[in-house]
């Protein structure tokens, strides 16, 4: 059994672990939502008794918006219900976290073995990019869980990673091998490595922004989300926005470096630092969209929900830059190992 084969096997194993994690995280979210509904009913009953107001029934309370949940709060999205200490983690949460750690560790081993098999840095084609990108997203998530309870992100991060790995194994897979002369440069490690880290960071930030948008829509009374009780379990939109911003800020600086590093490398390899190659165009578009996001956040009337949409657009561009540009356009970046269609 050679290293390349073992590496692929480990990716499959990691995929299985992450899928279990995904299911467990979802169960955990649902479970917490149930308890939350009960909490809320109790809370409202108490508030209703105190203020001799008309408290809703348990069902309508769980399904309704946050507004007015806590007496004495004046803001539209009160923090107090969410600020409550979470119930002690149940079995599902425990399984979810341990399988996520396991899946991430297996993925790391797969990446290392892949590098051994190819005899070079293991991120030179789309398949390897999906492996490492998923790993970074998982690592960012796990890193956060060490300091804070961000388990609400778990289902989405493991879900996205599972999708990426499935795509990687089935669509992008290429055999492990060396690289052509144009790729033989330490810039492969730096430029591509940083690009992957940036992508992983953007992925987690995207999850936070999507949750922010969903939560905001639900708090605003969106009919469609009426039964998505688990949304009550995620933090309020303002703190989701803060989380997304901090990650996006890091991602943006890394992306800036990716572009500068790419330009330096292009200057060495292709004899020009910028040539509006499709990959360069889309990297530029991504950069401008995230720059617009940063400006939107400081512009009156554009922060909050609208800014979050920039993150969604920006991340869509990131995904397109990775998949669409590699597969649809014939540029100088045709290193996917697959032929352009």
């Amino acid at each position: 059994m050679d290293a390349a084969y073992l590496s692929t096997l480990l990716v499959w194993a990691s995929l299985v672990a992450l899928t279990i994690a995904l299911v467990a995280f979802s169960i955990d979210l649902a479970r917490r939502t149930g308890e939350r509904g009960a909490d809320r009913a109790r809370e409202l009953a108490a508030a209703g008794a105190a203020a001799s107001g008309t408290a809703g029934t348990a069902t309508s309370a769980a399904g309704s918006t946050d507004a007015g949940a806590g007496p004495g709060t004046t803001q539209p999205h009160p923090v107090s219900p969410d600020g409550a200490v979470l119930p002690p983690s149940g079995r599902a949460a425990g399984i979810a976290m341990s399988t996520t750690w396991l899946g991430t560790a297996l993925l790391l081993a797969a990446i290392v073995l892949r590098g051994v098999a190819a005899g070079r840095t293991p991120w030179a084609n789309m398949y390897e990019f999906t492996l490492v990108g998923s790993f970074v997203a998982l690592a960012v998530f796990l890193g956060f869980t060490l300091r804070r309870d961000v388990r609400f992100l778990g289902a989405f991060v493991t879900g996205l990673a599972a999708i990426f790995l499935t795509l990687g194994l089935n669509v992008f897979y290429v055999a492990a091998m060396g690289v052509q002369p144009a790729l033989q440069s330490y810039w492969l490690i730096l430029h591509v490595g940083v690009a992957i880290i940036a992508t992983g960071v953007f992925t987690v930030a995207f999850v936070a922004s999507v949750l922010q948008l969903l939560r905001e829509a639900r708090d605003g009374g969106a009919q469609l989300l009426g039964t998505w009780y688990w949304l009550d379990r995620v933090p309020n939109p303002t703190s989701l926005e803060g989380l997304s911003f901090r990650l996006n800020a890091i991602g943006f600086v890394l992306w800036t470096f990716t572009i500068i590093g790419g330009a330096i490398w292009a200057e060495h390899a292709w004899g020009r630092y910028w040539g509006w190659d499709p990959k360069e165009v889309w990297s530029f578009v991504i950069w401008v969209v995230y720059a617009a996001y940063l400006h939107a956040r400081t512009t009156r009337g554009w922060s909050g929900t609208r800014a979050a949409w920039f993150v969604v657009v920006g991340y869509a561009c990131v995904l397109f830059n990775f998949t669409g540009v590699n597969l649809l356009f014939n540029g100088m970046h045709s290193y996917s190992g697959l032929t352009a269609g």
Binding site: L86, S89, R151, P235, S239, L243, R246
Partner: peptide, 16 residues
């Protein structure tokens, strides 16, 4: 006190 606190709820570390 960290600079990069991410969340509004008190830390719950027994996540895994």
């Amino acid at each position: 006190a960290g600079e990069h606190d991410t969340q509004d709820r008190p830390t719950n570390r027994e996540g895994h």
